[in-house]
Amino acid sequence: MNRRNFFLKAGVVGALAATEGLQSCVTGPKLYGDKSFYINRGFTAIPKLKLSSDRIIKETVGLRPFRISGPRMEKEMLGSKTIVHNYGHGGSGWSLSWGTGNQARELVKTTPYKEVALLGCGTVGIATATLLQESGFKVTIYTKDVPPNVTSNLATGTWSPSSRVCDRESATPEFEARWQDATRFSFRRMQMMLGMNDIVAWGDEYQVRKNAPSGTRRAGGSEVFHLKGLAPEWRELGKKDHPFNADYVRRRSNMIFNIPSYLNFHLNNFMIRGGKVEIKEIKTPEDIDALEQKVVVNCMGLGAGQVFNDKEVFPISGQLACLVPQTEVNYKLATDGAYFITRKDGIYLGGTGKENSWDTNPDRAETEKWVSILSDLMKEMKG
């Protein structure tokens, strides 16, 4: 045996002997076998939210454009103009914007025209305008306002493709098929945005309840449909797998949209590609008839219900309270009576859904209630 190999082997044996000697001096279980060690590490990945009224920096109320039978996706004639409708998404506008935008694009393709007027500058309008551009159409957006002064700017911003998307009893099999198509298209499109300035990101989401819900309430929230095979499914956690003082806890990964940067990014790209934005409020069908384009895509949300006398459309208001951003908190949580969502521009508390309410004035009592509920939850967390 040469000297080099001898010393290499001797060093390995010595290191192993030293390791065994150290382990024999340690009391208690070995680190790699200590299950509680890994659980405690998991707890540190769920930091507590700082909650107090003085950390609230703004309160807003947004109006979801709910339509009883679901988003209107169809083509009709208005005088000499072809109208393609794409509105009434309820709480699912952010999630379905690219999918219903693609369906609207297919309807526009059935016309002989290449210049399109698009009404509305929220997330549905911007996505639809972008897709039309990608198919070679020249698009002008007509809108009474632009981000951040649009209803889409007041949303929570998470992947929820069937949140208040329709009245379940009014949904037809044809609508559900369109919804599935839109959901799949939107999901694929959102994945293309990952890594682009964090306008779309993935994070953990928890649902926490003191008592386990009944079989009919286990889905939770206001989701009408569910499509398996896209986003990860919910997984119930045992008490040793979470830090909450609750009998029922489940977790999944979900997408979060950083709304201010998302809207600016896509609107700027639309304009860089030659798109135009004209500030013009559409109040009557005559206003539409006066537009120079022969094809008009209607993405006005609640405004569309008024212009086209659609009795199915009404608002569902949702209040949000924004806390100072907390860098280490990077998850979403919902419990009975309140939830919070982490975004780059702040941590948003919510929990309301008032039907047929046009009131956009925040109710401070609602905010204080959420702070109280979530504060109690945080105080009872382990670790």
Rank of each mutant, 00 (worst) to 15 (best):
A117C: 15
Y38S: 13
A231T: 15
S357M: 06
K210C: 04
E76S: 14
S214P: 02
N356K: 07
G11Q: 05
K344A: 10
Q23H: 13
G337N: 05
N2P: 14
N197M: 13
L119Y: 05
E368Y: 08
G33C: 08
D54A: 10
E278P: 02
G195M: 04
M271W: 07
G125S: 05
P161N: 03
D376I: 02
G318P: 15
I282E: 01
T342V: 07
V371S: 15
G122P: 14
Y142W: 08
A334S: 10
Y142A: 08
L374F: 01
P325T: 11
A231M: 13
K240I: 11
K280D: 00
G337D: 03
S214M: 06
M381D: 11
S162W: 03
L230M: 11
E236T: 15
V13C: 14
Y206P: 12
G93W: 04
N330P: 01
G383E: 08
S222P: 01
W202L: 11
V165I: 13
S152D: 04
N361D: 07
T151F: 01
N361S: 11
S97P: 09
K58V: 09
G88Y: 01
M73K: 00
S135K: 14
L267I: 12
K280Y: 06
E328P: 05
E312Q: 07
I373R: 14
G125Y: 02
C322L: 12
R4K: 15
K344G: 06
K332P: 00
S214C: 06
G88C: 04
S162H: 02
I279N: 07
G346Y: 11
A104E: 11
N254T: 09
T156G: 12
L374W: 01
L377R: 08
A304C: 01
L323T: 05
E134N: 15
